[in-house]
């Protein structure tokens, strides 16, 4: 557990206890969690610690992914505070390397070889370059992402942060926290930022 995770967990618990959130089916949820904790075995790189919720997961699991109140902003800020930037502080890398990374969906399953690098998984859920037609639709289309938004330093930073930790802006986002999870390094996220924002990237043609 990272410091951020522990902090999030500490913050989440009292807030939940004190909140007026109606826990529609807390009994069955409790039983579900007990059942899950009993029923799994480690395999490959997937150890049992993956079954534990961190603070963000805990609050999302208990609110149907729709938490409210001051705790949301606090936890989002906490997630943002954990973002790490490349050593040279440049946030736009090589869009071609980004495209390659975006294509790969490998990594972190018990059948994957442990260790890095893992894929960015981007096309699994997003439309990105118009050249790739086999894209998923779990997330929004990112076609023309930079063309529509520009590539100002602020936009670069937002995009970098969003990929590093999607929960910094939307606490219960469906999107993984690629940097926070240790899946992608800041230098790789930089390349993904370029894929989305570089005017030369096919995304913006």
């Amino acid at each position: 557990m990272t410091k951020t995770t522990i902090l999030a967990a500490l913050l989440a618990t009292p807030a939940l206890l004190g909140s007026s959130i109606v826990l529609a089916d807390a009994t069955h949820r409790t039983k579900a969690i007990e059942t899950i904790k009993r029923d799994f075995q480690p395999r490959g790189q997937a150890d049992l610690d993956r079954l534990a919720e961190d603070g963000v997961q805990a609050i999302c699991n208990r609110t149907g992914n729709n938490p409210s109140g001051d705790i949301v902003k606090t936890l989002e800020a906490d997630q943002l505070a954990g973002v790490k930037y490349p050593a040279d502080n440049k946030l736009m890398g090589d869009w071609k390397a980004g495209e390659k990374l975006a294509q790969s969906g490998r990594g972190f399953t018990w059948s994957d070889k442990p260790g890095l690098p893992v894929g960015g998984n981007c096309y699994n859920c997003h439309q990105i370059s118009p050249k790739e037609t086999a894209y998923g639709t779990v997330g929004p289309s990112l076609l023309h992402y930079g063309k529509l938004r520009g590539n100002t330093p602020e936009m670069q930073k937002y995009t970098f942060n969003k990929i590093f930790n999607s929960k910094a802006y939307n606490l219960c986002s469906d999107m993984p926290r690629f940097g926070h999870a240790g899946a992608l390094k800041p230098e790789q996220i930089k390349d993904l930022v370029a894929l989305l924002l570089d005017p030369e990237s096919p995304v913006n043609k």
Partner: peptide, 29 residues
């Protein structure tokens, strides 16, 4: 209990069953 298991998010990618299988008209690739 099964219904609650489908909603349980955990793991390195914060996925539950419902992340992919909780709304209509979605695709992976």
């Amino acid at each position: 209990i099964g219904k609650e298991i489908t909603a349980y998010r955990a793991g390195p990618y914060d996925f539950s069953c419902n992340t992919c299988h909780g709304s209509d008209g979605k695709r992976i690739r």
